[in-house]
Structures are given as structure tokens and as C-alpha cells.
């Protein structure tokens, strides 16, 4: 079994060039350009804030609820963007795959890295927002980076797994688009998890086993307030490990399937 040479100089150059190209092209031809990377989650946040915090009065008992809501929407946007674009990566770069020989995972990684760059820009906005809102800076903020890495690993695993099937069966991309809409409501982004726990502790526990919910709650915990209901705090440390296990499992299975199928991408695309 040959381990891919991730740090091979040639691959690294190709990865940076493709990432640069993707990032440049994403907002090509729009008046506001890169500003859209910031505006999209902020506008989504504004809508959710008006509907859920102001009209429906969600999260009245959560300190710094606007920051809480913004963090959730930004992380969710990242996961959606990352997985949707990652799944389409092979099909979108068919021109390269049919003409040169190179490790195909470079395309998936370069496509998803654009979402990572967007997230990092948004993270700066969240921090500014949090400081304005009166959140005290703390060392626990540093935990945010490994948590983001966990979420990225999950999105990348899904991109590898579904992206390699999507080469042959283009339905996968559309199925995922619908699935992710449903998933949005299964993750405590707009509603506080405590609201679910009031009616059913059991349902809240199941929700928190989802690694996306685990990451979002943990980020909120380390960034905004220790009063956040987290997977390890509410369900138990074992549940935190299960959620992380799901991420690792998805990534390993995704990478293996991708590696096995990638030799046929050139002829199937």
C-alpha cells in the first residue's frame, strides 16, 4: 500500500495554484467581490435573528444570544459550502482529470480550502462581534481552531465519499443538497438545545451525538459562554468520543473509497 506523498513539492504547488484560482474565480464578476464571503453569513444571520430572536423570542435566557446565533450560522454555512463544493469538485475539474495524471484528492482539498478561507475571514467578524457584545476574551478561544479542524475533516470525508460516487451518479449531489436542508433543523443553530431538552431529554441527547452539533456547541462553549449545553456536559464524555469517532470514521471510509475509485475518474467523468 502506497501512502500518498501529501507534501511532495509538485503536489503542493498544484494545490496552492488551484486554491488560488478557485478563490479568485468564486467572486469574479460581482460588484462587491470578496465582500460576499462576509455578507452571505451576515445576511443569513440577520434574517434568523429577526425571525427567531425578535419575533419568536428564542434564546432570551442565553447570554450574548446574537453572537451565539452568528457563530452557529457561520459554522453551518462553512459545513454546507465545504461539503457541497467538495462533492462537485471532481465533476467541476473534469478538464484536468481527463488530461493529466495527478493525485485527484488535490482537487477536492483545493476546492474545500476556499470554504476554509471564507470561514477564517468570518471568524474575525465573530470575534469583533463578540468583543462589541461584551464577551470577555479567554484562553478557551484557542480551542476553536481544533474544533474547526474536526468539522473540516467531516466535510472533507463526506466530499471524498459522496464526491467519488457523484462522478458516475450525478444524482448524489442533488440528494445531498436536499439532505443538508433537513440536517439544518436537526442541528441546534436557530433553536437553543435547552428548548428541546425541556420537552425530551432523550431527543436532545440524540441531537448532541451529531458531530456537527457537538462542534457548534463546543465552539459556542469555548468562545461565548460556559453556560452552553455541550455534548460532553449534557450526555457524557463518551458521547463526545462517539461524535469524534463518527468524524474519523467518515473521513477514513471516504478517503479509502475515493482512493479506490479515483483510478477510474478519468474515463467515467
Amino acid at each position: 500500500m502506497k501512502i500518498p506523498r501529501v507534501w511532495d513539492k509538485r503536489n503542493l504547488v498544484l494545490l496552492t495554484e488551484l486554491t488560488k484560482t478557485d478563490f479568485k474565480l468564486r467572486y469574479q464578476g460581482s460588484v462587491l467581490g470578496y465582500l460576499w464571503a462576509l455578507l452571505r453569513p451576515l445576511l443569513m444571520f440577520a434574517i434568523l435573528y429577526i425571525v427567531f430572536a425578535k419575533l419568536l423570542q428564542f434564546g432570551n435566557d442565553i447570554p450574548h444570544y446574537p453572537v451565539y446565533l452568528l457563530t452557529g450560522t457561520v459554522l453551518w454555512s462553512f459545513f454546507t459550502e465545504c461539503s457541497q463544493q467538495g462533492i462537485q469538485a471532481m465533476v467541476g475539474r473534469g478538464d484536468l482529470i481527463r488530461k493529466i495524471s495527478f493525485p485527484k484528492y488535490i482537487v477536492t482539498v483545493s476546492t474545500t480550502l476556499t470554504a476554509v478561507i471564507n470561514l477564517l475571514i468570518n471568524l474575525v467578524v465573530i470575534v469583533i462581534f463578540a468583543l462589541i457584545n461584551g464577551v470577555a476574551p479567554s484562553f478557551s478561544w484557542l480551542l476553536v481552531l481544533p474544533l474547526i479542524f474536526e468539522l473540516y475533516l467531516l466535510a472533507l470525508g463526506i466530499s471524498f465519499l459522496l464526491g467519488s460516487i457523484n462522478v458516475k451518479y450525478r444524482d448524489i449531489g442533488s440528494i445531498w443538497d436536499v439532505l443538508i436542508q433537513a440536517l439544518f433543523y436537526a442541528v441546534p443553530i436557530i433553536y437553543p438545545i435547552a428548548m428541546v431538552a425541556e420537552t425530551s431529554t432523550w431527543a436532545a441527547k440524540v441531537i448532541l451525538l451529531n458531530p456537527i452539533a457537538q462542534v457548534i456547541q463546543d465552539v459556542r462553549w469555548s468562545l461565548i459562554t460556559p453556560a452552553t449545553v455541550t455534548t460532553s456536559g449534557f450526555v457524557g464524555v463518551w458521547a463526545e468520543l462517539v461524535a469524534m469517532g463518527i468524524v474519523l470514521g467518515t473521513f477514513v471510509i471516504g478517503a479509502l473509497v475515493f482512493r479506490k475509485r479515483s483510478r477510474f475518474f478519468a474515463e467515467e467523468i
Binding site: 513539492k9 509538485r10 504547488v13 498544484l14 496552492t16 495554484e17 488551484l18 484560482t21 484536468l96 493529466i100 495527478f102
Partner: peptide, 10 residues
Amino acid sequence: YLNGAILGFS
């Protein structure tokens, strides 16, 4: 630069 990277140049 893009095409160069594809052909294996730094």
C-alpha cells in the same frame, strides 16, 4: 502560473 503548476513547475 496555473498551467506551469500543472506541468510540474514551482
